[in-house]
Amino acid sequence: MRIYAKVKSIGKRKPVLELHPFDITSVDTLRQLITQIVKQNVKAFNEERTFTMYLLEEDIETAFEQGKVGFNYKYSDAKQAEQAAIDEALSAFEDGIYKVLHGDVELTKLDAPLHVQDGSIFTFIKLTMLSGRLW
């Protein structure tokens, strides 16, 4: 089954809400959905091989629209631990660091029943912590 995820960070001036496809197996809860998405992202991160040391014109234009142009160079060869990443993602959801919407409905509980269909769209909204002076 293929679903789509959109990621939004409240603090960004130019929101990028591209649809990112994920192929998942059947899930019954938000916990299972987050777990599968994190596993795929960890696998992609750990297998990424950066060998191109130049940017194409379209890469520069896309990065410029997003607000940062760079090589996305990884300075460490360390691999991400899958279970640690899953635990972090679930803990961050429980702590209110990000919200998840299924269509227009906010999902508030990790273990509540979830009805996912092929082509469902989930929006992940990262909430920004505010700090600074009171005036």
Rank of each mutant, 00 (worst) to 15 (best):
S120N: 08
V27R: 00
I121G: 02
I97Q: 00
D95M: 14
K109T: 05
G70T: 06
F64V: 08
I34F: 03
V105M: 08
R31S: 02
T52C: 11
V116W: 01
A85M: 09
R2M: 09
R13D: 15
A112E: 02
S9W: 02
A44Y: 04
V105W: 00
S91F: 05
I34T: 03
A81R: 07
A84W: 00
E18W: 04
I37R: 11
V7Y: 01
V38Y: 01
E65W: 06
F22A: 09
K8N: 12
K79Y: 03
L114G: 01
G11A: 13
A63D: 11
K74N: 13
M1E: 14
A92E: 07
Q80G: 05
V27L: 02
G132T: 00
G96W: 03
D111Y: 10
E94L: 14
L134N: 12
L33R: 01
N41P: 03
E82R: 09
T25V: 09
V69E: 12
D87Y: 01
D28P: 07
E57H: 12
V100I: 08
Q36R: 12
T128H: 03
D77E: 15
M129R: 15
I24M: 12
Q117K: 04
P113M: 12
S26D: 09
F124P: 06
A5T: 07
Y73L: 15
D23G: 10
F93A: 03
N72A: 15
Q40F: 12
F93Q: 00
S76R: 08
H115Y: 04
E88I: 05
R13I: 15
L56G: 11
L19M: 04
R49L: 12
G96A: 11
F71K: 07
F22N: 06
R13L: 15
E18A: 11
T52R: 14
I97A: 01
S76M: 03
T123S: 14
K99A: 04
F51V: 07
L127W: 02
K99W: 04
H20L: 10
K74Q: 15
P15C: 12
L134C: 08
K14P: 04
F51H: 07
D87G: 07
Q40H: 14
D28S: 15
Y75H: 13
N46W: 08
T50D: 12
D28M: 14
A92N: 11
D95K: 15
K43T: 07
A78M: 05
E57S: 12
L33S: 02
E61L: 14
K12D: 12
G132H: 01
L90G: 00
T62E: 12
T62V: 09
T35C: 00
A112G: 03
V16M: 09
R133Y: 01
A84F: 01
E94D: 11
D104I: 13
E47P: 02
E48D: 10
F93H: 00
Q117F: 05
